[in-house]
Design a protein around this nucleic acid. Structure first.
Lengths: 224, 224, 224, 224
DNA sequence: CATGAATGAGCATTCATTCAT
DNA sequence: AATGAATGAATGCTCATTCAT
């Protein structure tokens, strides 16, 4: 989590020269670290109790800051919620938008992306963010729209491009998919919801599920 | 729900005897009506604002009863939530469990059931119940389990039976489906979530979506 | 204070007939008593600490009710403030508006009214209400206007009528007063402010002050 | 105020010697300027929102300093309040204490002082300070006493001396005024309160009001 | 001296739940 | 059974004050 945002900032910056700059950085780094800690803590609390039931007191405690500090970084509880989405989900989408290499079968590319999704989202706290958006989104229209514009729309466009490429190459059995690229990821979302509800007594093997799903959509993957 | 259904049964069979009994029944009928009104009102409020944010005051107002009356019927707010699920979702499942008629193509049967689902759930307030369960379920393990045992498990079993029958008759292209019958309904769930989040600016044609989906799973439906 | 509102209610009502009505009244009487207690407590707290610094917790404690009860009677803290003015100051004004008896010297009537003001306002908690309005009014424009329309404007009109009558009878030395009836009461207001600030170490004899003031305005009162 | 005035004095007399001293002075001048800026800003905020509701954050912003800087000059919020009174009101009083020239009618002198008060207080932000003292004073006994000792008492003494002189010269109609010199200024105070409450919809012409008032007290001013 | 990030006590308001009527 | 007034714990947010830089 500190990794997430912090690593970005760090990699953006040059190795760091003078002592004066060092001091300045120490301050802003500390501030950024606090901010990150708050976002992470909020994610935990929000996804455990829901937006309404989560207490900022607990967020603060978990983040190791005073309650008032939260308000130095976020206007209010809802802004904190929005930040979670912006921080955790939006960056993810870029990876989906790289154009497919021409010499790899689309099925393989899709498989790769699905695997990545499972690895980077399903298996991490990002899954909780996604679940949170699905659960609380209806009550936060602004957030829903932000999420749609910055994540969903772009993800669908990317998927559609991929499917169109597949169709062009004759690799796509089911042209219908181009109309509804959502169909490719629907089982992923279902799995996320499933895990939140039933994991304890009816765990689901997402990889296997998605593998079967892709087999159905694209046909069995040919072993090389 | 238990009581509500029971009172229904009672009123169905009672041939209507003495005046005294009539009065008794009148009373219990009134009570049952109140109960129903409360559940309906609660559904509205819960699905609009979420479990935490919904106020029992509003539920009472909407149901036309006093706040205290709610507690004559339900132990607490959570019990009311559970009742909603029991009342609105469980009865639905029975229709899914009737064995398929032997002379109709499975694809047609599945299509019929999907249509029914769209008509009876997606197009009604039941959709909100389902969304509610998906959204709030993780915070109510008891409810989640109840829902799993009484709805999900049975729905999956029914679907699996259907798919097995299809396979036995050679009507199923993708044997994988038998392992993951969830794949059949995943797009439905996605559509429900989608509608809650994005309907305003990106409406989704569920019927068309599901039709495409079934085409992919079973092949194009043959016109008779 | 209980006197204030309660006595009104009581005097409006018939002696009270049936037992059933008695029970009903018991409830609403209790409610009215609570309301009165809250208003009185609020006045104490507001005039002691000021509007902002007064804590509703203390108001509740002083009124002997739970904090939430306040909100059964008043939308918010400000509404409670407004109620104080409406309850304590507005009723007072009626007495000022009775037309002067034709056979009594105006000077005597004014003196009587000033004495009444001293007795009914200056010597009671109403003085604190007045002080409160003067102190906090600028920050509550709505309240200020309400107070102006319902108290000040009417009081000035009544005073002006009195002075006009005096002028007509040749009893008014200073015609200027008709233009500025405020001049008659200005020392009263000053005295109220004075008492709030300096009473501890520089008490002021309001009666004597006002007597001198009226002597100046009207000439010495003739002993009968 | 003490320090502010002191620094002023210092800068008045320092003939400006060495560079080192120059730098020192520059520093302390800057500091004094800051202090003044803070007091001015605080006056704005306090008189707009009241003592409790005023936020030091806003004071700092308006003064163009950091929040912490306020605490370099004042122990706490209340000290800042006291400073406002000391700075803005006390200096004013000196002008009132100069003995009346023997050849000018007292009525004229009083008129002159009233005009000065209107010009220097009523028409400036000092009016807000005065209003502030009247409004918040009861909650700050120490301030009230300071204000009484340094302003009110002296003002009253000065006014009484004036009135005594008038009486001695046979220019005072109403000997009662000597007992209550407050009566002379009461309408001024009322006007200040009035303007805070009702200015928007019922403006008051203070000059005319006071002119009438003085006419009543002293008789019409004789044209020369 | 100056800064402004951080603190945490404080407070208005809400709302599930109870209980006298 | 039904009511709805009363309760009081809970919680988001504010802001005077401190202190490391």
């Amino acid at each position: 989590m500190a990794r997430r945002a912090a690593s970005k900032l760090r990699s953006d910056r040059a190795p760091g020269p003078a002592a004066a700059a060092g001091e300045t950085r120490k301050r802003s780094e500390k501030s950024a670290a606090r901010r990150t800690a708050i976002v992470d803590a909020a994610l935990q609390e929000f996804s455990t109790r829901g937006f309404e039931a989560a207490r900022l007191d607990d967020v603060a405690k978990r983040a190791g800051v005073a309650k008032g500090t939260i308000y130095l970084h976020f206007r209010d509880k809802e802004a904190l919620f929005q930040e979670i989405v912006g921080t955790m989900l939006v960056p993810m989408i870029a990876a989906m938008e790289v154009p497919p290499p021409p010499d790899v079968p689309i099925r393989t590319i899709v498989q790769t992306r699905v695997d990545m999704f499972i690895r980077e989202v399903y298996a991490t706290e990002r899954r909780d963010v996604l679940r949170l958006v699905m659960a609380e989104g209806p009550r936060f229209p602004h957030l829903a729209e932000f999420y749609y514009r910055n994540v969903v729309e772009r993800a669908i466009a990317a998927m559609r491009a991929l499917l169109a490429a597949a169709a062009a190459r004759g690799e796509l059995r089911h042209g219908e998919l181009i109309a509804y690229p959502q169909l490719v990821v629907a089982p992923m979302l279902m799995a996320i919801i499933w895990s939140g509800l039933f994991e304890r007594f009816a765990p689901l093997d997402v990889s296997a599920l998605m593998h079967s799903h892709l087999d159905i959509l694209f046909g069995k993957e040919c072993a090389p």
